[in-house]
Design a protein around this nucleic acid. Structure first.
Lengths: 202, 202
DNA sequence: GTCTATAAAAGGATAGAC
DNA sequence: GTCTATCCTTTTATAGAC
């Protein structure tokens, strides 16, 4: 918050490059590889400069999380106004760049309180936005919200998409095609306006 | 494989204690905290002994994964013969001890090939076993396997349960009650034998 | 704001005594 | 099989020149 924030966001300022470089290293090689020397090299600066901008490495990690979170949230807010919010949410949560980083932060959060708090706050904001988008979509389509609460549908979409990404990352693909086809079928049900749609049992 | 394996599994042999200690440290503080000195202290032995049993730390990590995997697989095989396999699978994948370790290994696998290969192999065996259990359960209950392929149902159960655990770990609980209630409703549908069950659209 | 240099700590791994 | 002692590398973090 009190960190240097330029009025003119020059595209080559070191602080920003360090944040981006850290995200990249974490994604590619895991958080344990994101040392001050490694991220400095990636950003094209010297190691000591890391500590000019960030008191500790943990502070840098938190900034990476915060910056990525803002970008992700912005992206998600557009899903609110999208033509097909459900599929858009699926697409967003299928971005391996995001899910990969998320896995690293989940692991990091296990033993760093500052990161856990930040990740929790971010996850809850994401859930709220995603749920709002889903609520609108379901209402528009006349879905029974008692049987399919928006928060449930948004969690299912987000978590299943991420699970597939996580498995992809380690090379596990068994059942993925089948699951994707199944999800697509559910989207069709929720999208359809005919009597064969989702209001059975409503 | 070629490692010392006693005919009499004395409850206090150091190799086993090192594996257990490493799992504990990884669960509690993350994989980065599982250093040779740290796990040795946890196991009540000296640091150098780690390298007597394991050539490198990576070998130790792989053994932790392998040992945990065998135990988990054994647990899952019982689900095959269980009275209520679907709910049993849900329960197994809701064990925070397992999901916590899994998160660590997912992150580890991002940058250690040996662990990625091992994790992939384990995940695929788990999927096969879980899918087999689900297939039997669904067939018994007369569910249309075209609409609900066993591999899809097993993935949904496992991944959603794990997602809830992962979120619990960072303190996120928004929507959890609603999702759990939703899942329970689905289990009821799959369990029910009346005409209101799952065969609609079949 | 960015650098060089270095202190101080921690980690992986090995040698060799017992 | 377990220990002590040690080496070498890597890391975080700081001091101070430019």
């Amino acid at each position: 918050m009190a960190a240097p924030r330029k009025a003119k966001p020059a595209d080559a300022n070191a602080r920003r490059r360090l944040i981006d470089a850290t995200a990249k290293v974490m994604r590619d090689e895991g958080y344990a590889a994101a040392t001050s020397r490694r991220v400095a090299a990636e950003a094209g600066v010297k190691q000591a400069l890391v500590y000019y901008y960030f008191p500790t490495m943990d502070d840098l990690f938190v900034e990476v999380l915060r910056t990525g979170a803002e970008a992700a949230l912005e992206r998600m807010r557009t899903a609110l106004t999208d033509d097909d919010p459900l599929r858009t949410l699926w697409a967003i949560n299928s971005d391996s760049r995001l899910t990969g980083l998320n896995t690293e932060f989940m692991a990091l959060a296990n033993h760093r309180k500052a990161i856990r708090a930040e990740l929790k706050a971010f996850a809850e904001r994401v859930r709220d936005i995603e749920t709002a988008a889903v609520a609108i979509a379901l209402r528009t389509r006349g879905v029974d919200l008692k049987e399919f609460p928006p928060v449930v549908v948004s969690m299912l979409i987000a978590q299943i998409a991420r699970s597939l990404c996580n498995e992809d990352a380690v090379g596990v693909v068994t059942g993925h095609d089948e699951l994707r086809a199944f999800v697509e079928r559910q989207f069709d049900r929720f999208t359809a306006d005919d009597g064969d749609a989702v209001r059975v049992r409503a």
